[in-house]
Amino acid sequence: MKGMTVVVKKTTQLIAGLVFLYGIYIIIHGHLTPGGGFAGGVILAGSFILLILAYGSDFLHLVREEAGTTLYENLAILVVLVLALSGLLLGTHVFFLNWAPKGVAGELISAGLLPLYNIFIGIEVAASILSIFLALVIFKEEITK
């Protein structure tokens, strides 16, 4: 896939970082404001897709990146599963038990384990959507060869 014109490249350079930061904001404030792991993860993947579309597929050395995204995806879902299982081992032995201290409702660090679930689900969603997109791009490159 070839890159686009210099106007698109410059605009992408200015915007992509902001989109990435907005995704992180949505994920971290998932237990306070609308949004959460799923929404923020898709926004994170969107910033990478913007970069790949604007700069072409040579920009990111794609084959290696795809291996990275699948690794992050599997590790993130594993961490979510371990967090859920930790509720089974501690406290009243319930799967998905929120055993950590709740803190003051409305503060950034509160709600026990929910922010951690949000963060790792966000990583998982971003990595899986990005790896689907990269798989399509790599497929096209290999077919045109």
Partner: peptide, 10 residues
């Protein structure tokens, strides 16, 4: 119960 202000996340 959940400590989360956003009910959907809770």
């Amino acid at each position: 119960k959940t400590g989360s202000v956003n009910l959907v996340t809770g």
